[in-house]
Structures are given as C-alpha cells and as structure tokens.
Design a protein around this nucleic acid. Structure first.
Length: 666
RNA sequence: GCCGGCGUGGCGCAACUGGCAGCGCAUCCGACUUGUAAUCGGAAGGUUAGGGGUUCGAGUCCCCUCGCCGGCUCCA
C-alpha cells in the first residue's frame, strides 16, 4: 500500500496532504458539508473521485456558480426519478440547471396537473430523505443504448454524440465517454438511473432546499417541429433561507409587475376591444410618458439630431425594396387593400394598392435622406423620430408593455461617411449610456453581435463595421461580451443591457451598422472631390420602445418615480375645509413653476388623504392646518414618511422645484 | 402559432357535490371638519367574457370563439 501527496485547495487556501492509494476525494472534505464536488485540473469531478499522485484538488463549494449548478442538476435528477416513479410511462428528455434552478422534460401521456406537481414534490422529499447515493459509472455506447432502450430521447442523444449538431442542443452527453449515474439506496439497490455527464452531489440528502415551481410545455430540443414535452421547473438552494430569499424576490417582482401597477396607478390599459398588445395611456401614464419624451427630445436636440415625422402606413413597394416583405412578412400586420376600381361587370379596371402598417421606421428615414441630393458637408445627418410601429407578434408572446404589437421607437438613423463611422459610434454609445443614467439606471453591460451565417453584403464591410463597434465599446468602458453570429442578417450590432433595482437585466438600446439598406435604396452623397459615395447608415434605438422602457421604469422604481417623472409630484392636503383656499393658492404658485400638483379637497379625513397619496406613491405632500396658515407655512411630508413641519411656503416651493429640476430621486 | 391554466360590478375576492349572484375597496349622495397610512350612514353598480348545448334548473357540466396568465418557439 503506497502513499503519495496531493494538493488540496479550498476557498483559495491550499495545503499538502499525504494520502493512501484508493483514497476518494470526499475523504478530504469529510466534515465539510459545503463541498459538493471537486475540480481536478480543469475537470469537474464527483467527490467519489479516486485521488492520483500529484493531483491538485479544488473544492467546489455549494454556493459557487458551479456548486449551484451541480446542486440544481442533481435536484433535476431527483425530480425525474420522482416523476418516473409516479408515472412509469414517462420518458426522459433533458434536465439541465438554469438560472436560479433547473428543469426536466418528460414525454408523458397526460400533461401534468397542478395536483401532480404537489405529488411529485412529496415524492422528491422522500427521495431526498432516503439519502440515495449518486453513483457514477462509465459505459460504452452500446451498453448505454442497451440500458436505456426504453428511453427514446436518451437514445437520440447518444446517436447525436459527436455529430455537428451536438452543441446547438442542450445535450448533456458532451464527452466521448458516456457515463450513467445510478441512484443507489442504502441497501445497495439501484432506484433509478440516468445518462449524464455529471458531476453530482454525493447523495440526495445534500440537497438543502428545493421547490417545484411550475409546469409548461417545451419542444423537444427547442424545435417547434418536434413533439412538445412536459417541462417541470424547479429551484434549489444551499439553504432554506436562500430559498426563502429567492421566493421573496419573486414575490417582489410580482408586486412590481408593471401590468399590475399600471392598473393601480391608473397609467395605462389594454382594452380588449382594441386588440392584444395595443395599449392606451391614461392621463397619469400620459403625463409620465410625456415627461420621458420631453427630456429625451431636449437631449436629442442638444446632441445634434434633427427631428422628422413619417406616416404609420406605406404602400407595399417600400417594404419590397427594404426587404421586409421578403424576410419578415409574418411579423407584419396584414395590409389593407385600397383603391381598386371595377367596371359594371365587376372586372378590375385599376388594380389596387396594398398599404402596410410599418414595422420599422428605417425605410421612411431613408426616403428623407433621399429626398434630395446630399453633400458630404451635411454628414453626419442624424434623423430622429418617435416613430410608432406595428408588429404582428405571435399571440403567445404578447406581454404587457414589454412585448406589445404597437409601440413607439425612439428611433434614429445616422448617415455618415466611412471615416466618420468610428467616431460617430463612440459618441453615440456615450450618449446612450448618459441618457439612460439620467433615467435612473446605473449598471450597464453590452453584447456585440457579429455576422450570422445568413447575411447580406460584403464580408469586408462586416469586418469594418464590427471593428468600429468594438472600438466604441472599448472606449465607453462598458463591460461587453461578443455574441458570435447573433447579428441581424443586415447588420452587426451592440445591444446595451441595464440592471434594474432588483437585479434583473433588460435589453434596451441597440446600435446597428446597416450593411444593406444603403445599397438597396442606392443611397449616395457627393464628396469634396465631386464623386458619389455610399454613406454608412447607423440604426439606433435608445429606449428601444418608449412603452417598454416605461414599463421597465415602472418595475425599476416599483411605481415610486423620481419627482421629475412622477405623474403627480405634489398633493396638497388641507386638514379642514377652511384650509383649502390657502393650499390652492400655494398650488397655483407651484403650477406656475411647472410642478404637477393636486389639491385633495375631498370630503375625507386628512389621514385618509395621506394614505391615498402614499398609495399613489406621490413624492411630496404639503399639509396645512390652522397653525400653518397662521405662520405662512406648510408641513412637508416625503413619500418615505419623513416629515418637516412648519416649513415656510417659499422654502417648500424651492425645495420641490429644485428636486424636480435636478432629476434626482428624493 | 403550440401546450397547460384562468375569465364573477372599475379593482381585489366569495358562492358546498348544479338550487335566490354576495363581500371589501373605489364611485355617487348625506352627515362629520378632524395635525401625518383607512370617520359614519345610505345609494347605485352584474345578460357571471361572448355564443351554443345538456338539465326542471348552469357562475358551476360539455363544445366553439374572444381575452388574459405561465412556459415553448419567436422578438428585423
């Protein structure tokens, strides 16, 4: 029996250990429940890994990214075992870890019912309690096929192994060597098994906290031509407290849901009479939207943009030229057919015209550029419009303001010379980030999406454009990732993401260098030398969609907007009826300074009025009774509940005006 | 578009296995005139999303349509 040295690393601290041949990794961490797996070299292994001479073993902690993934994936196995025990005919799909949890897909005769989820969860608890061991075993392809002959989807995965398709699926098979994990009970029998790359927790008991969340249908391998399987979603965490925190975050997200707050704060609605995904803005939502737009307008004016206005519909030909009808007809509302004339026999004398609602503003802005000959002296030409577009989104995807069928882009198209391109992109990106900051968003990241397989134009132009975009990103200092092949067919792009107040990431702005439209529309400008050149064209949406951005801000602020955006900035509350005139006078003063103020002279108690204003998340309340009227003062109450009594009227007006103008959230 | 769930006054909800559609908030009217998150009393408001069917009888069971929700696919 020989001995050798290994290096053990845990949380950054390494130590030498002497071990005997055959020692398993878990013996190194026997009294350390946070260690769920290990890393040897760059290979993740189970704790059942047999140590070799000179190994450097790094502990994988349950709270780390990898540790969580292992926990969640192991929980997915438990879910699958539970399902197959309760539904013996269920066939296994795949069961990967995802953000905050896991899912597992099953082919079952009947979709899961809410009741079934309860039963599955109880069964999972039983399995966890049984403390089954996750036991790894290497198998040949043939052995795997034989053992999993009842699992058609697993067989398909085995067949896919090594094929060129294997990385665009979530296939777990990956490596050349197939492995099967057995769930072994204490008496040594195998309760369940699954084809899996691993690694896993040592035992099911090591799952501290989990919950099944919901069921849904999902296409096998994500392809809508394939059969739909039943997907079971769950979440798993290192502790009960972590699980509770997660559930509380979900509840918080639900409380902030802009569809709910939109009703509570009377901002907007989606009348069924109009149609799905088509919002109407009520006065409160209207004023909020107007404040957002006004500020953006002002900044665009300062930024050298020129404002244009274009129609909502256009003849078919325009979208033929732009290529929209060729590429995206499904995403467009069907046309209205106009102008057809028939003779008395009903024969068509003059063919009609199809008019489509526009799905984008670009072709219209291009026509503005093309309206006359353009000189290099005019470039860069920055056209801007709040342009309302209509897209016939599939019925299942429409979602409040964040995915609507009619929405307004803060759309800009910039035409520039080749040597202006890089500079223009860099200043654009800065402009975008600065403006988003002004709306209260603080954390940004970006994706650079490059040439897809299916593209138009000259690869050389793509390279130039991609380089210019990347350069802009580097100058901006925004953290970014390259999304290889994710660009639109006509343009590489930068997508800017923001993080909201509860940590969710939203994609907002896009910057695209268009490599198709200038050609398609034969755009040119005249150079200093008198020659004609093709301009570069940049698409830029900042909010993306005003409606969507508004929805995101509602959720970001949970409806408690900073004063400059709040639909009602001040509510004045007279303690008794006789104080009404005093406050109305003050309100008039505020109004003359551009403040949105309401006087609540309803027949209610003061306390009730405070409550109402509080629930409407109004930033400031000005309350006045006899004492205040005598002193020419008001009692100043913030949304936070803090108050300053006996503030002089001038001081109160000043404070409010200052807060609104500074666009800070007080 | 696909799978599942849901649809009761403006909003939030109730109505046992099929048996008189009800409550709270909001609204309107009246009284009260109050010092920092809900004053009291009264009234009005519903073809139970729409249509069809089963039944002596349907909010409840069945079918179709519309809409919404959760996912999948999609998001130029």
């Amino acid at each position: 029996m020989s001995e050798f040295h290994v290096t053990v690393v845990r949380a950054g601290e390494s130590a030498e250990r002497t071990v005997r041949t055959g020692t398993k990794a878990w013996e190194l961490f026997a009294d350390d429940p946070d260690v769920v797996a290990a890393e040897v070299g760059d290979q993740l292994v189970d704790l059942s890994y047999k140590l070799g001479a000179g190994d450097v073993i790094t502990a994988v902690l349950i709270g780390s990214g990898e540790g969580l993934a292992i926990l969640r994936h192991s929980t997915a196995h438990v879910a699958a075992q539970a399902v197959q025990q309760l539904f013996p005919d269920a066939k296994l799909g795949i069961g990967p870890p995802i953000e905050d949890g896991f899912y597992y897909d099953f082919d079952v005769a009947e979709p899961f019912k809410p009741d079934d989820v309860e039963r599955i969860q109880s069964q999972m608890r039983r399995i966890v309690k049984e403390n089954q061991q996750f036991s790894r075993r290497e198998v040949s392809d043939d052995e795997a096929r034989r053992e999993l002959s009842d699992e058609p989807y697993k067989l398909e995965l085995i067949d896919l192994k090594g094929s060129s398709h294997s990385d665009d699926t979530e296939v777990e098979v990956g490596a050349d060597q197939l492995t099967i994990y057995d769930n072994v009970t204490r008496d040594g029998s195998v309760a369940w098994k699954d084809l899996c790359r691993g690694p896993h927790l040592p035992t099911t008991r090591r799952i501290p906290a989990f919950k099944l969340m919901r069921t849904a249908a999902a296409y096998w391998r994500g392809d809508d031509k394939n059969k739909q399987l039943q997907r079971l979603y769950g979440t798993a965490w290192p502790s009960k407290e972590d699980l509770d925190t997660h559930l509380e975050q979900l509840a918080e997200a639900e409380r902030r849901d802009h569809r709910r707050l939109g009703v509570e704060l009377d901002l907007f609605s989606f009348p069924a009479e109009i149609g799905p995904g088509l919002a109407v803005f009520h006065p409160k939502g209207g004023v909020l939207r107007k404040a957002m737009e006004d500020y953006a307008r002002m900044r665009h004016e300062q930024g050298g943009y020129e404002f244009v206005y274009t129609p909502h519909i256009s003849k078919e030909q325009l979208f033929q030229t732009s290529g929209h009808l060729e590429w995206y007809a499904d995403g467009m509302y069907p046309p209205m057919h106009l102008d057809e004339e028939r003779d008395s026999e009903g024969n068509i004398r003059k063919p009609g015209q199809n008019y489509y609602p526009k799905p984008m503003n670009c072709p219209m802005h291009i026509l503005v550029f093309k309206a006359r000959a353009r000189s290099y002296r005019e470039l860069p030409l920055r056209l801007f419009e709040f342009g309302t577009v209509y897209r016939y989104e599939m019925s299942g995807v429409v979602h409040g303001l964040t995915r609507a069928r009619g929405f307004t882009q803060d759309d800009s198209h910039i035409f520039c010379t080749p040597d202006q391109l890089a500079g223009e992109l860099a200043s654009l990106l800065t402009f975008v980030i600065e403006l988003l900051r002004d709306y209260g968003l603080e954390e940004f990241s970006a994706d650079l999406s490059t040439r897809p397989d299916n593209f138009v134009g000259d690869p050389v132009d793509w390279d130039i454009a991609e380089a210019a975009l990347e350069n802009a990103l580097q100058k901006s200092g925004v953290e970014y990732a390259v999304a290889e092949g994710e660009g639109a067919f006509y343009a590489p792009k930068i997508d800017v993401h923001v993080k909201d107040a509860i940590g969710r990431r939203w994609q907002l702005s896009t910057l695209q260098v268009d490599l198709q439209f200038p050609d398609r529309f034969d755009l040119t400008y005249q150079t200093a030398a008198g020659t004609r050149e093709r301009p570069y064209m940049i698409h830029r949406a900042l909010f993306g969609s005003i409606e969507r951005f508004l929805g995101i801000l509602v959720e970001h602020y949970a409806g408690a907007f900073p004063p400059w955006l709040a639909p009602v900035q001040v509510v004045a509350i007279p303690i008794a009826e006789r104080h009404g005139a005093y406050l109305n006078q003050l309100a008039e003063r505020l109004r003359s300074r551009g403040i949105r103020v309401e006087v609540d002279d309803s027949d209610e108690r003061m306390q009730k009025k405070i409550r109402t204003a509080q629930l409407q998340k109004v930033p400031y309340m000005l309350i006045a009774g006899d004492r205040d009227v005598e002193q020419g003062a008001v009692s100043f109450r913030y949304r936070s509940g803090e108050q300053d009594n006996g503030i002089g009227v001038d001081e109160a007006v000043d404070r409010i005006v200052k807060a609104v103008e500074s666009r800070t959230n007080v």
